[in-house]
Amino acid sequence: MRVDGLNTEMQAMMLEASSARATPTAQQVGADFGDMLSQAVNNVNGLQKSSGNLQMRFDRGDADVSLSDVMIARNKSSVAFEATIQVRNKLVEAYKELMNMPV
Score class of each variant (00 low, 15 high):
M1V: 13
M1I: 04
M1H: 10
M1Q: 03
M1E: 07
R2H: 10
R2M: 04
R2Y: 02
R2F: 02
V3F: 09
D4K: 04
N7K: 15
N7L: 14
T8A: 13
T8C: 10
T8N: 14
M10Y: 11
M13P: 03
M14Y: 08
M14K: 15
M14N: 11
E16K: 12
A17F: 11
S18H: 07
S19V: 02
S19D: 05
S19P: 04
A20E: 11
A20D: 13
T23S: 08
P24I: 09
A26G: 05
Q27S: 13
Q27W: 01
Q28V: 09
Q28L: 08
V29I: 12
V29T: 11
G30D: 13
A31I: 05
F33Q: 13
F33H: 04
G34P: 03
D35M: 13
S38R: 13
S38G: 12
Q39K: 07
Q39I: 03
A40T: 08
N42S: 12
N43I: 02
N43L: 09
V44C: 03
N45Q: 12
L47Y: 05
Q48A: 09
Q48W: 08
K49M: 05
K49A: 00
K49P: 07
G52D: 07
G52T: 10
Q55R: 13
M56Q: 15
D59G: 00
R60Q: 15
R60M: 11
D62T: 03
A63P: 00
D64C: 07
D64Q: 10
V65E: 01
L67H: 00
S68H: 04
S68P: 00
S68I: 13
S68D: 14
V70C: 13
V70F: 06
V70G: 02
I72C: 02
I72G: 06
R74V: 00
R74Y: 02
N75S: 12
N75M: 08
K76A: 03
K76P: 06
K76V: 02
K76L: 02
S77I: 04
S77M: 06
V79E: 05
V79T: 09
A80V: 01
A80P: 08
A80W: 02
E82N: 11
E82H: 10
T84S: 09
T84W: 02
I85D: 00
Q86A: 13
Q86D: 15
K90Y: 12
L91Q: 12
V92M: 09
E93N: 12
A94L: 11
A94R: 08
Y95E: 00
E97R: 14
E97G: 06
M101S: 12
P102Y: 11
P102H: 05
